[in-house]
Design a protein around this nucleic acid. Sequence first.
RNA 1: UCCCCGAUAGCUCAAUGGUAGAGCACCCGGCUGUUAACCGGGUUGUUGUAGGUUCGAGCCCUACUCGGGGAGCCA
Length: 432
Amino acid sequence: MIEVTSVERLAQHVGKTVCLRGWIYNSSSKGKLHFVQLRDGTGIVQCVVFKNNVPPELFEQLGHSGQETSLSLVGLVKADARAPGGFEIDVTQGEIHQSVQGYPITPKEHGIEYLLEQRHLWLRSKRSWAILRVRDAVITAIRSFFDERGFVCVDSPIFTPNACEGTSTLFEVPYFEQTAYLTQSGQLYAEAAAMAMGKVYTFGPTFRAEKSKTRRHLTEFWMIEPEVAYGTLDDIMVLAEELLAHVVAQVLLRRPEELAALERDVEKLKKIVAPFPRLSYDEAAAILAKHPESTFKYGDDFGAPDETILSNQFDRPVLVHRYPKEIKAFYMKRDPAQPDKCLCVDVLGSEGVGEIIGGSQREDDYEVLLGRIREHKLPEVAFQWYLDLRRYGSVPHAGFGLGLERTVAWICGVEHVREAIPFPRTIYRLTP
RNA sequence: UCCCCGAUAGCUCAAUGGUAGAGCACCCGGCUGUUAACCGGGUUGUUGUAGGUUCGAGCCCUACUCGGGGAGCCA
């Protein structure tokens, strides 16, 4: 019986005859010799088919089978320096499951519009394959990081009755006799869970109806939101940098081939070790004030170009903390040392990618929080359950949100977050 | 919501206001070491839509549609 194996395990089978099942990634023919690049999901291997070594029908069929033909090939595994990847299969038998002609995505260039239209097929390309496998490693690393530190994963609801931070960017959906909204953030629910379990995190999809068309925006994206009871701003700043360092280290360890396929400069990733540089808003503002290209005005939030300027000052992500209260959310606690500032932090990824984390210590005083809700003209009734958390055993607590796609795009060195999610949802694209 | 850019063969693109083309894909043939193979031959068009200017529009003008990049806002 011939053993079925996968491309990623070929090194263990050198000198043996195995069966591989997959698809033709590319092929070329030299008369009495076909080279088939076989893709099986775990990698790509070159299969060499000499006319005299295989049944004539198979040789003939392979000559007429294009990209993405599905097939099984049986052959001897050899180490060969001439083959991409270092191994190749000397084919002796095989079976074509479906012969394909005219697969729409060729190894040549395609425009982004066309590729997005064909996303269900584009997933098979080496680039998408590599990015999505990095995404998987990032997710696994995040879960193991929190698990090892005693965090409990809690799931926040996707249907919500109200906004966390205003209603303008919510997707509305009919909900029996009521209107529901798709969640923008699991934070408020994470706060409730933190009071129950101490250290928690949520990990789920979030939805924003922002009419943003930039390389940093999706309408549906995944967010990881840890929340720590008795945690302070300093605690979550340390947590954030340790998390990012852990994730990058795990990707370097587990996905070197994928990073190579993406032509990612791994030397830059190897520098991502804690601690990260920290800047107060005031310090960051001073840097921007001296920078000729910045249009920043003190008191404003940093624009995307400002974030790029700041992040380019360092070879690691930078933590920017204590922003003016006017530009931050109602639930953020003020800094007792400077009441015009919030105990909050944004983490800007390195290499100019911009914000990947936003977090804060939360306001834990009932009266102060109620005042904020009124100041921001938020529907008080809807926040009664949230205020309960300050009525019954309120404690200092803090947390942050990490944008998964922005993190994956940053680690992969890809420009646009739409490539960091299997099926991106953007303002003008709902399909496939 | 605002600003900028684009739409020509299945794909990526070219075409001074004057006969709509190339490469790839696909089909046929050749080649025992290709790396996006190569060589020879072949098929492929309502130039996004609707008007307008002109002897003549892919090209100039207007509107619209679809998409891309960015601003704001955010992860």
